[in-house]
Each structure stands twice: as structure tokens, then as C-alpha cells.
């Protein structure tokens, strides 16, 4: 579990617009946030345990066992920018948009590409085409 949990955003619905990140695993969080920062898009870390509450009663189960796609979709629904990112306990990373169907995320990959996910989450907000996947990272990349 990430040590940094920022609850202010949930209390204050009038907070500045941000991308929301729900991360169960620690792996890749720093890289994910770096990707968003490089593109200049603000991000807020939300408590993954609240995933089901923010998703409007969607059946996500409890936060720790939720998949990256569920976390990301719940985060997207909680974001005023409609963009959310999730990292699950397995190290899977997902970028989602609130207006897309829950089971059809924008990008799903593993923690090794967390940085790339951060860039792409930011690009959904600023309206730039998604970044090319970094070539050195094949799907065979170790998950842990």
C-alpha cells in the first residue's frame, strides 16, 4: 500500500481538476506520476479502498483485490477530467476514461510501462495522440 494517501480531494469536490490515480501496489507509482508530471497534467492519489464508493455502487469488490481495470474505471469516474489510472496488487497498470465502457479501457499493461501510462493518461486530458509504446518493453517483460 502506498504511504501517501491524499484524502483532501475527496472531501472537496471543488478542488482543481485532476487525473485520479488509485494504486494498490507500490510498483510503478512513482513512474506513473512522473509521466503525468512531464506532460504537465495534475494528478491526485486516491484511496483505492474507496473504489466501490466512487464508482457509484459498481461491483468492484474491496480495493485490495480489485483489478487494475476496475480501479482505473472507478478513478476515472471520480476524476473531474474523466481520466483515471489504476495499479492493482499484481502490478498491472490501466488507464481509463469515464465515458468508455467499464470493460474497455484505453490502455492496460504492466508496471514496467507505468511511465508510458502516465504520459497517455495526461494526453487524454490535453488532447494529444497517445505515445508510441516504448519498444524495449515486450509483453514478456517480467511482471514483478
Amino acid at each position: 500500500m502506498s504511504g501517501i494517501v491524499d484524502r483532501r480531494g475527496q472531501r472537496d469536490r471543488h478542488s482543481p481538476p485532476t487525473v485520479v490515480a488509485r494504486c494498490v501496489g507500490d510498483h510503478g507509482v512513482r513512474e506513473l506520476l512522473a509521466g503525468l508530471e512531464e506532460e504537465g497534467v495534475p494528478v491526485r492519489l486516491a484511496d483505492p479502498a474507496d473504489a466501490s464508493a466512487d464508482a457509484g455502487g459498481a461491483t468492484c469488490g474491496d480495493g485490495a483485490s480489485a483489478t487494475a481495470v476496475e480501479l482505473a474505471h472507478a478513478a476515472a469516474r471520480a476524476s473531474t477530467l474523466d481520466v483515471g489510472v489504476g495499479i492493482d496488487s499484481e502490478g498491472r497498470v490501466c488507464v481509463h476514461h469515464a465515458k468508455r465502457p467499464a470493460d474497455r479501457p484505453v490502455v492496460t499493461t504492466d508496471a514496467a510501462r507505468a511511465r508510458w501510462c502516465g504520459h497517455n493518461a495526461a494526453r487524454l486530458v490535453i488532447g494529444l495522440p497517445l505515445k508510441e509504446p516504448p519498444e524495449q518493453m515486450e509483453e514478456t517483460w517480467p511482471h514483478h
Binding site: K99, P101, R104, V106, R123, L124, L128, P129, L130
Partner: peptide, 10 residues
């Protein structure tokens, strides 16, 4: 239907 992610902003 949502457009594919590769098409976004392109």
C-alpha cells in the same frame, strides 16, 4: 461504439 485508443486525437 467508443473509438479505438490509437485513433484518439489523431
Amino acid at each position: 461504439e467508443p473509438l479505438p485508443a490509437e485513433a484518439f486525437a489523431r
